[in-house]
Design a protein around this nucleic acid. Structure first.
Lengths: 228, 228
DNA sequence: CATATTTTGCGTTTAAACAACACAAAATTA
DNA sequence: TAATTTTGTGTTGTTTAAACGCAAAATATG
């Protein structure tokens, strides 16, 4: 067998959405050459664990969070991306509603925090590039997969999903056409509850019906939202 | 630093298109537990080389081929995907016109060959899964990126690209609508040459204008072909 | 208490894109 | 000379997208 000296790591680009802001989960490095810099949660893969298991474990350890949505993003393997040694990192994209977990820094991390995506601190290694890739994936994917709901409460006023799309895509969309289109899919069900907003008129609460979506998908249905 | 015993490899899912058939490039393993089984070209990454460099090198070494198109596909890292030891493999998707290279097996490969995608031999490791992922990516991507041309000659009759789409998507498409749509983009230019078919009427030869496409893309143009 | 403000919740009209479909002309083969 | 294969256009009805306007329900304001 060949002799090879490459380490394998995983990193997670985890997005949250709070108060009309897209946020990114970061930790402050405790050790290493990039000590005290903010970085993506992640770490080395154990010999006996699968890649997604490794991300899940690291996230739990470093931030206390368990994701609602996780998918492999891209693998970063440039020779000099880490100056200490050769590290190939498999990046994952994760989504979570930040309200569902309290952040708890621990083992490898001094601090943990949510940062507005458009006001990130300087990041360690090539993590800026990884985040860019993650954001790009998210922006593309919400147009053809209903993953945006992972970022919201189970029950939400329609304006929430509408604002979420505008925030993530960073452009205005027509409320009326958006609502018509989304409702036409039949994957949102109306609850009998009403929101109590801080200002303005109360709104019906909706719920994303995962079962219905899966069933439709099975029948060849293809979620897709286009924007003017 | 953590002690870790994982090897990093790359594998290539390389597609070719010949005579209305989608083909896959395979090599017959010379060594190892999967000796004499067919497998994807690939191998271990050297400590000092980037991932895409590694794929390119391995492909050249094992098959003599240099790709026209290459993109990262997905990373496969299940603990037991290789029974000898832990190997994480970054898979790449490649496209080439098989006519452009003569296959030359060498160092690590007993034989090299093109196989019709719907008549593959049993594959080593989890390579079947990797191929499935590659095919899925190809099928999706030709709908929104003009990568199909990488599989054709520089100059080709229109029916070639039309048949290519039907073959890859494995379903019939309406010739008239397809042609109208594709021509409307203005990224195909007509040459003054005429094909000499083996049967039927001669046809104008077209050429994909990469420059024009890149320019349009810059201006926000989005290649997309939908099918009835 | 009346009025302004915010936000919700529809609905219409026009333009563009898609889907479905037919037939004649240019070559080769029989 | 006729049959076969393949090319190369159209047209029309249907669906979807784009661009709009406005009234009602609540809260905030003076």
């Amino acid at each position: 067998m060949i002799s090879q000296n490459i380490k394998v790591a995983v990193d997670a680009v985890v997005f949250g959405y709070v108060e009309r802001q897209l946020q990114l989960l970061l930790i402050k490095q405790k050790y290493g050459s990039e000590k005290n810099k903010w970085a993506l949660p992640g770490g080395f893969v154990l010999d006996h664990e699968d890649l997604d298991t490794a991300v899940t474990r690291e996230l739990k350890e470093e931030t206390g969070i368990t994701l609602a949505y996780l998918e492999q993003l891209y693998t970063f393997g440039a020779v000099k991306r880490d100056n200490r040694q050769r590290v190939v990192s498999i990046a994952y994209l994760g989504l979570i509603n930040p309200k569902k977990f309290k952040l708890t820094a621990s083992t490898d991390a001094l601090e943990v925090g949510w940062f507005a995506i458009d006001a990130l601190p300087p990041l360690a290694f090539d993590h800026q590039e990884i985040v860019a890739k993650g954001l790009e994936r998210l922006q593309n994917k919400i147009s053809y997969k209903p993953i945006g709901f992972e970022l919201l409460n189970t029950e939400f006023p329609f304006s929430n999903i509408e604002n979420l799309y505008q925030t993530i895509l960073n452009k205005p969309i027509d409320r009326r056409n958006f609502r018509k289109k989304l409702m036409s899919f039949g994957i949102l069900e109306e609850t009998d509850k009403i929101s109590k907003p801080e200002s303005g008129r109360p709104a019906k609460l909706f719920r994303f019906n995962t079962k219905k979506y899966k069933a439709l998908e099975q029948k060849g249905f293809h979620f897709e939202i286009k924007f003017a």
